Computed example of a mutant assay.
Amino acid sequence: MFMSINAQKLAGKVAVVTGGNSGIGLATAKRFAAEGAYVFITGRRQNELEAAAKEIGNNVTAVQGDISKLADLDRLYATVKKEKGHIDILFANAGLGEFAPLGSITEEHFDKTFNTNVKGTLFTVQKALSLLRDGGSVILNASTTASTGNEAFSVYSATKAAIRSFARCWILDLKQRKIRVNAISPGPINTPGLSGLTQTEEQDRQFKNAMIASVPLGRLGDPDEVAKVASFLASDDSSFVNGVELFVDGGAAQI
């Protein structure tokens, strides 16, 4: 059951969450809405997106789209402009990953991963700039994989390292507008995306056990634990936090 929020620290804000149909994106959209924001969510799969909007409840608009397709981003922001006219919070969350060891990496795998995670994130933010209010908050979903070695995961890890670099660079590009840009780096979080990395239930069990063994807190994270950090970065609670990488990993990347 989703925890009720007492203080609406995002009251009156307009937020966009890409990849808001499941996992971290859905948990964050739910928390943003519960804290008073009006939330626009995107996702590639219409059925999942509609179900997510129902789960969020009030103060939400769902716009189907793929962030690697610039026309879909244009359609998203045209909807935001028409309905609300501006954006206060942007959580560039959408991304994907698949295992591929060096020696087996295909051009298709490379292009798919970089087009979504790097190109998609870049244009998600760039195309939002005309709607983003001065003093707004941009949050990028990076990963602990940007800081650690990961077997058969080099392409995904490289995309997340690029996202970390975006945060550092964009705070300079946007400094005149006082727009803050921060990155969240989740560790192993219990999401559908984590399970989607394996083929069978037994592989999923072994993979998650290995992940748990790498976490000093001894468990997988919950999507809402990432959402709470995103809410902090979205709100005035983090008004002097800019360009950081905030790990939400139970300590996994710190040892």
Rank of each mutant, 00 (worst) to 15 (best):
T18M: 00
G19Q: 02
G19C: 01
G20I: 02
N21D: 14
N21T: 06
N21S: 15
S22P: 00
S22A: 13
S22L: 08
G23F: 04
G23T: 05
G23S: 02
G23P: 01
I24F: 05
I24K: 03
G25F: 05
G25H: 04
L26C: 03
L26Q: 03
A27P: 01
A27R: 02
T28N: 09
T28F: 01
T28M: 10
T28C: 11
A29F: 02
A29Y: 03
A29W: 02
K30H: 02
R31K: 09
R31I: 01
R31L: 15
R31E: 01
R31P: 00
R31C: 02
F32T: 11
F32A: 12
F32D: 07
A34H: 01
A34T: 00
A34P: 00
A34Q: 05
E35L: 10
E35W: 02
G36A: 13
G36V: 11
G36M: 12
A37L: 13
A37S: 12
A37V: 12
A37R: 08
Y38W: 11
V39L: 05
V39S: 07
F40E: 04
F40N: 03
I41C: 05
G43H: 11
G43E: 09
R44T: 11
R44N: 12
R45P: 04
R45I: 13
R45M: 12
Q46S: 11
N47Q: 15
L49T: 08
L49H: 12
A51F: 14
A51V: 13
A51I: 13
A52I: 07
A52T: 10
A53H: 09
K54F: 08
K54W: 01
K54C: 07
E55D: 14
E55R: 07
E55N: 04
I56V: 08
G57A: 05
G57C: 02
G57M: 04
N58V: 02
N58Y: 07
N58I: 00
N58L: 00
N58T: 12
N58D: 14
N58F: 04
N59T: 08
N59Q: 14
N59M: 07
V60E: 09
V60R: 03
T61Y: 00
A62P: 03
A62R: 04
V63A: 05
V63Q: 05
Q64R: 14
G65S: 09
G65M: 06
G65K: 09
G65N: 09
G65T: 05
D66F: 02
D66I: 06
D66M: 09
D66A: 08
D66C: 07
I67W: 06
S68A: 15
S68G: 12
K69H: 10
K69R: 15
L70W: 01
L70V: 11
L70T: 10
A71E: 15
A71N: 13
D72W: 03
D72M: 07
L73W: 08
L73R: 09
D74M: 03
R75V: 03
L76G: 07
L76E: 12
Y77E: 11
Y77N: 08
A78T: 10
A78Y: 01
A78I: 03
A78R: 06
T79R: 13
T79G: 03
T79Q: 13
V80F: 03
K81N: 13
K82F: 14
K82I: 09
K82C: 13
K82D: 15
K82S: 15
E83A: 14
E83K: 14
E83T: 12
K84H: 00
K84C: 07
K84P: 01
G85E: 12
G85N: 11
G85L: 15
G85W: 01
G85F: 04
G85V: 14
